[in-house]
Amino acid sequence: MSASRLPYQSWHRLGANTLPWLLPLLILGAWEYAARSGLLSTRVLPEPWAVVKAAWHLVQTGEMWANLKVSAGRAFAGLAIGGGLGLLLGLLTGLFVPAQVALDTTLQMLRNIPPLAMIPLVILWFGIDEGAKLFLVALGVFFPLYLNTFHGIRTVDRNLIEMARSYGLSGWRLYRDVILPGALPSILVGLRFSLGLMWVLLIVAETISSSSGIGYMTMNAREFLQTDVVLVGILLYALLGKIADVAAKGLERVCLRWHPSYT
């Protein structure tokens, strides 16, 4: 009986694997057709094939790699500064009550300011050079990491801490073996939030003004009506976002192997 059901099952699996791709392929086909037949002006959207060719051209001239490097560099520098600071302050306020009393209220007030609302001020402070972009990204990624680290440490199971103390753990060993691992799931959630915000803020910052990076590449192409290059830029941002997300998920899977929902 089970043997006779096998072919059906394998068809079923094949269908489940290909069906989700059917619609994107159809859209792509329709788009290509519309662009070739002139229904769709190239000023609105170039044909997909032109986008591929533009991408290839940018790879060959080395422009793509150079701009990608600049953008990724900005993103991760901002993440390192803002996220690192958020993690540090979160640990500080989470672990030490005096630090919490002194800092938390202020930080909770500041977090209500959307980072993008700071743009005029940031331009006044930093002009339109690298500093402005780093500051915006750092500001954006700071709060998710700070809040989640603080929250993670505060919600570590009190019973586990009591148990560990009764087994003689204290000081640094208590932090290393109980409190930090207990807060880690929450910290990693904060990291994933931060990564999402990181790209948004970078795109905004680069679009406003820059002389290098993917944002520069797309804005430059816009002036020359090179819609294909603009599309390449958009797709690159999407790709970078996806890579960061996959990396964060991988980190979760490695760091939270013990967690039943990550195995």
């Binding site: 560990a164 753990l169 109980v178 880690l184």
Partner: peptide, 14 residues
């Protein structure tokens, strides 16, 4: 038990 420690590491805690 500490969920992030293996069974044996839980047993030799501390």
């Amino acid at each position: 038990l500490l969920p992030w420690k293996s069974v044996i590491d839980n047993v030799r805690l501390g």
